[in-house]
Design a protein around this nucleic acid. Sequence first.
DNA 1: TATGGTGTTGTGTCG
DNA 2: ACGACACAACACCAT
Length: 524
Amino acid sequence: MAHVCIHWFRKGLRLHDNPALMSALRGCKEIYPLFILDPCIHNKESMGVNPWRFLMGSLQDLDGSLRKLNLRLFVVRGKPQDILPQLFQKWGVSRMTYEYDTEHYSRSRDLKVSELAKEHGVEVVYKISHTLHDVDRIIEENNGKAPLTYGRFQTVLKTLGPPKRPIPSPTVEDIKDVKAPCVESHEEQQYGLPSLEELGHDLSCLQEAPFPGGEEEALRRLEESMERTGWVCSFEKPQTAPNSLSPSTTVLSPYLTFGCLSARTFWWRLADVYQGKKHSAPPVSLHGQLLWREFFYTASVGVPNFDRMLDNPVCTQIDWDTNPEYLSAWKEARTGFPFVDAIMTQLRQEGWVHHLARHAVACFLTRGDLWISWEEGKKVFEGLLLDGDWALNAGNWLWLSASAFFHQYFRVYSPIAFGKKTDKHGEYIKKYLPVLKKFPVEYIYEPWKAPLSVQKAAGCIVGKDYPSPIVVHEVISKQNIQRMKTSYGKRSQGVSQSPQPTKVAEKRKGPSVLDMLKNKKKKK
DNA sequence: TATGGTGTTGTGTCG
DNA sequence: ACGACACAACACCAT
């Protein structure tokens, strides 16, 4: 029996390495490639103009690639649990496929939708292809808990072997028996692509996108990076500059977030480049970066309430301040610290900043200077970043605020010194904060220290044309280290008093490969 | 159960 | 230019 099938695109906005799409095409007589604009995700508040534009571009590219196969993308608007049952009926659907998504929201949504599909006699098939591995298996192999250190994570990964090889894109041959429905009245039936204006963003401040969305651009960008074999083999993340004028890293993260690029395609492409050459290794290598992604994905699945402080068993409980003035100043790039403000400006304009730049501003907002909860910072990043991946964003905020994973809270980034290491002359600051363009080099990181005559000559008076610093970093950061110490003190008391997390972790049935290795060692 | 080594990416100072 | 060290001392993991 041939199927009428919906392939539901959510992430995974690509044709290459898309096993769910492939299984949609198998034994299929009619296919509806579908994207749902979900008001819970795609709204003005949680999605800023840049990520929205990236999504638009990705959908456009996807539709273009589908057209080459004589198919079209169907875009509909509404809650999936309302929309899908209607479509099941309207189109006479017998099968639905999608890529597995580990995010909390997605999992509960998919659970609901699967129930509805069952009621409508629709078979649901999903495949894992957003992550390198099945993260539930990683947790299982680690006795039901997510590894909390990278080292431990790597040990567990070794028992799983390399990720699966990516599969190729479907070809005309793969769809020769598949009928493309409703091609003619596509726009009239309101299945057309959304417009940039649809969310009601202000588009006037929009510059040309430095990182346009889409699978084609993702694969082009991948190849562009992989051509530099020497650079790829010697890549060490901590050695790359956060404030270079053009990115010092691949900027493939947005394409991974939306699934325009398959992580497994990237991983195996790197393995090709490494082949037979001396190369850097995790955690600092490019392979290592993909493993960090996997690490946080795993943690986000294994840790309850991963994206908040309360009832999060791995998160240090800290008495963060509520300070709307400080928060706005940080968000709107008016802290008075040029390095911080330049980063926040680039973030707003381009939707991407270097990982270490994120460190600097995240540390500044939380434990370093402003003592504002990492959850606030997380929300701001989510709206602005093209690669605002739920798991990675929450995980890195936990890390930077020394709430989980990272605990050396006395290592505080200086908003003055850190940037100087890789940009002595403050070129980066001058690019993103043109108001400071004429400031002499010796004051570019600390304009408030310049004598008034110098400020006048530079055409920029601190406190008038550019804000005065909102805190005295040298003083506040020392106080905050003490506050961290207090929070950590309470933490170690709390752990011994309160029982383990209420949720009982699912343990694997037999001994894990790790257990067996352990036993083997013991016998020796 | 105790203990010592380690941790992707700090700063500032000294030599 | 670069390494060593103090800062003050954490959590996690292997043994």
